[in-house]
Amino acid sequence: MSESEHHHPNYVKIWAILVVLLVVSVLGPELGIRSVTLFTAFGIAIIKAYMVAKNFMHVSVEPRFVTYLLMTAVLFVVLFFAGTAPDVMNAEGTNWEKSSWLAAEASAPAEAENHH
């Protein structure tokens, strides 16, 4: 698609919406409800990312393969996470253990926050 074929939406309006979403994501944790904080932090981050990709990067007017390329990279990140998290997030497993984690878990929470 050539330059002249690009449709230019009202970028200032999109920016204004992004700023409003930013304000919501900052105010969300003030309510002190964990599920609300998670949504206003990460749900809104995903919405903002989608808006930037669609309106500023014009992903939606690129050939479809560009979206597939980007999604393939995201899929590999998900695969990496799914493949390593079960071990990384556990302190022990079959024939292995993370002695420093176990020691930290056994000690006071104040000490646990400082372990590596």
Partner: peptide, 14 residues
């Protein structure tokens, strides 16, 4: 910008 959109909640809000 997009990377920062995710870094911000991860490092500053959560």
């Amino acid at each position: 910008d997009l990377v920062w959109i995710f870094l911000f909640p991860l490092l500053y809000i959560a």
